[in-house]
Each structure stands twice: as structure tokens, then as C-alpha cells.
């Protein structure tokens, strides 16, 4: 099934685009998708998402269908889902 993934701020910069589609297996989880996204884009994005190589950095936010999902929560993706990976930003 195809899932749309959207990126913001530095995550978007590292991915090189603002949104793309991933073709994943039925029953895939959000965590599996995010790991696949990191692998697909290589070190520039992987170092932001998984600085310790295992867990998502806690200040990178995930949204599925406009609802925040914490990394430790298990969510099975469905075909209509849009996943957003948000990088924190600040003032200045």
C-alpha cells in the first residue's frame, strides 16, 4: 500500500523534498516506515532522526492523520494515512 510522508524544516532539507510516497507492506507499523524513510535517504536524514542509531530522537515529532504518535506507541498504518515527520524550530 502507498503511504504519503511529509517532511518539515531541517528534516525536509535533509530529505531534499517536502513529501513523497512510500510503498509498504499491509500491516506495517509507523516505526517500520520511519526506519525505511531514514534508510532510503541515507546519513544526512538518518543522523537527524536516529542520532543513536536505535531510537528516534525524542524531539522529532510524528503525526499520523494529524494526531501526534509517540515513538514508543505502536500504530499500524492504513492506506489513507498521511504521516508527517516534524523537526523542531525556534524564534530569532
Amino acid at each position: 500500500m502507498k503511504i504519503v510522508v511529509e517532511y518539515t524544516a531541517q528534516v525536509k532539507k535533509a530529505a531534499g523534498l517536502s513529501r513523497e510516497e512510500f510503498d509498504i507492506n499491509e500491516g506495517s507499523t509507523l516505526q517500520e516506515l520511519v526506519k525505511e524513510v531514514a534508510e532510503h535517504h541515507g546519513p544526512s536524514l538518518k543522523s537527524i532522526l536516529f542520532p543513536d542509531s536505535v531510537d528516534l530522537h525524542p524531539s522529532i515529532l510524528l503525526f499520523v492523520a494529524n494526531e501526534q504518535v509517540l515513538w514508543e506507541e505502536s500504530v499500524t498504518l492504513e492506506p489513507h494515512h498521511v504521516v508527517t515527520i516534524l523537526s523542531p524550530i525556534s524564534g530569532g
Binding site: 518539515t8 524544516a9 531541517q10 525536509k12 535533509a14 543522523s47 537527524i48 542520532p51 530522537h57 525524542p58 524531539s59 522529532i60 515529532l61 516534524l86 523537526s87 523542531p88 524550530i89 525556534s90
Partner: peptide
């Protein structure tokens, strides 16, 4: 791009709920 939210103690979480640690790429 921009982001905005309003935290009200006892009614919402706080900035540390949203971003628990310094972000890696900021």
C-alpha cells in the same frame, strides 16, 4: 515555515512534553 501552540498550565502539556531534548540539527 512556522509552528505555533499555546500551553496553559494544568490544561495542556508544556514545551518539554513536545520537545523533551535539544533538537539535534537546530
Amino acid at each position: 515555515e512556522a509552528q505555533i501552540t499555546t500551553f496553559i498550565p494544568d490544561q495542556t502539556g508544556c514545551l518539554s512534553c513536545l520537545f523533551p531534548h535539544d533538537p539535534p540539527a537546530w
